[in-house]
Amino acid sequence: MKVTYQTCCGVDVHKSFLVATIVKTTGGIEPSYQKKRFSTFNNSILEFKQWLLDNECHDVCMESTGKYWVPVFNLLEDEINVVIANPKWVKAVKGNKDDTKDSKWIGDLFRLGLVKGSYIPCKKVRILREYTRYRYKLVSCRSSEKNRYQNALTVCNVALDSVVSDIFGKSSTSIIDYLLEQSGTSINHEEIASKLLRSLKSKEDAVIESVEGYQMTDAQKYRMRLVRAHMDYITAEINDVDKMIENMISSNPDFENAVQFLCTIPGVKRDSAITIISEIGTDMSQFSSSKRLCCWAGLTPGSNESAGKKKSVRITRAGVYLKPA
C-alpha cells in the first residue's frame, strides 16, 4: 500500500496520560517507531508538542475518546496537523491491545491513509457550539420539568389541562396559584371565574368542573412549588445564554452574514440558523459536496450489504443537535 505520511504520530489519549508513537518511513520497507508517554497536564502536552517538532513530525492522529482529546488538540492545532478519528475506524483487534499497541496501531493506519478524519471546526465555532448545545440541554431540562408539573396536577385530580390549551398560560397559572394557596379542598367558583381571561371566559363551567374536588396535600403543594421555581430558574438561564449567543453572533461579521443568509431559506428562523452555524461552521470547503454534508449530519442511509442481502441501512445518530434545527 502507498505510504501517505512519511513521518506521523499515533496517539492513544486517556484522562490522565497519553501514549504517542512516532512512525517514520525511510528507505526500508519496515518503518521505525519511537514511543513515549506523557501526562495530560499542559506543561507535559507542550513537551509532547516539542518532541514532535524535534522529530519533524507535523501530522498526528488521535482517537476521539470522550473529551480527553480536546486539551491536546487545543495546544497542538496551531503548528501541527491533528486528525481526530472516530473510534470505529481505528479499533484494534480484541485480545491483542494495550495503550502502547493502540498508539502504534493508530499510527500504522494513519501512515497508510486508512483513517478518516472527523470534522473539527475552528475555536470560535467550537465555543459557539458549546453555548448552543448547552441551551439545547437547558430547554430539554425545562421540558422535563413541565411534564413533571403537569403529572403532579393529574395525580392531584386536577384536569385543567383537558380544558385549557396552555397549562402555563396566565389564566391557568393564576388558577393553580389559587389552588396552592388554599388550605382545604373547597374552591370559590367566583374567584376561579375572575381569573379567566379572553376566550377562556366562555369555558367557565368546564374550568370549574375540572378542578372541583381536587386532592392536594401540603407535601404535594411544596413539591409543585419546587418544580415551578426550578422552571423559572432554567428560563432565566436560557435567557442569559441567549444574550451571550447573540453577542457572539453580532460581534463576528462572518457569523452574522452566514446567519442572515440562512434566514433567507423559507422556514429557517434566526435560532435555527445559529444552531446550524454552530454545528457546521462557515467554511464549507470541509465538505466536498452537499451529499458529504448530509452524510456527516446523519441524514443519509448507510450501505450494509453482504451475500446479496441488504441489512439495516437506517440513518445514524450523527447530528443529534443539527437535525432538530
Results as ranks from 00 to 15, higher is better:
T4L: 14
C9M: 13
K15R: 15
K15Y: 09
A20Q: 04
K24V: 10
Q34V: 12
K35A: 12
R37T: 15
T40D: 12
F41E: 12
N42S: 13
L46F: 06
E47Y: 05
Q50M: 08
L53I: 13
E56L: 04
E56P: 00
E56Q: 08
E56G: 03
C57R: 01
H58A: 09
S64R: 07
Y68W: 08
Y68A: 06
N74R: 09
N74K: 11
E77R: 11
I80N: 05
V83A: 15
A85P: 07
P87K: 08
W89F: 08
W89N: 09
W89Q: 06
K91Q: 12
K91P: 04
G95R: 12
K97Y: 09
D99S: 13
T100A: 10
K101S: 14
R111Q: 15
R111G: 00
G113P: 10
V115N: 01
K116V: 12
P121D: 03
K124N: 11
L128A: 05
R129P: 03
E130N: 10
T132F: 00
R133T: 00
L138K: 10
R142L: 03
N147C: 14
R148K: 14
Y149K: 13
A152I: 01
L153H: 02
V155R: 11
C156W: 04
L160W: 01
D161P: 04
V163I: 14
S165W: 02
G169R: 03
S171L: 01
S174Q: 08
I175Y: 02
I175S: 06
I176L: 09
D177F: 06
D177N: 15
Y178S: 07
S186V: 12
E190F: 07
S194C: 08
K195R: 15
R198L: 11
S199G: 05
K203L: 06
E204C: 11
V207K: 01
E209D: 13
S210N: 10
M216K: 00
T217K: 10
T217F: 03
D218K: 12
D218Y: 08
A219T: 07
Q220N: 14
K221V: 01
K221F: 00
K221N: 03
M224V: 03
H230T: 08
M231V: 05
I234W: 05
I234H: 08
D240N: 06
D242E: 14
D242A: 02
E246I: 07
N247Y: 06
M248R: 00
I249V: 15
I249F: 01
S251W: 04
D254H: 05
E256I: 06
F261I: 07
L262A: 02
L262P: 00
L262V: 01
I265D: 11
I265V: 13
V268Q: 05
R270Q: 14
I274D: 00
S278K: 01
I280S: 04
I280W: 03
M284L: 15
S285R: 07
F287L: 08
F287E: 12
S288H: 10
K291R: 13
R292E: 13
L293Q: 02
L293M: 15
C295I: 04
C295V: 08
A297K: 11
G302N: 13
N304I: 03
E305V: 14
S306W: 14
V313H: 09
R314Y: 06
R317P: 04
L322T: 01
K323G: 02
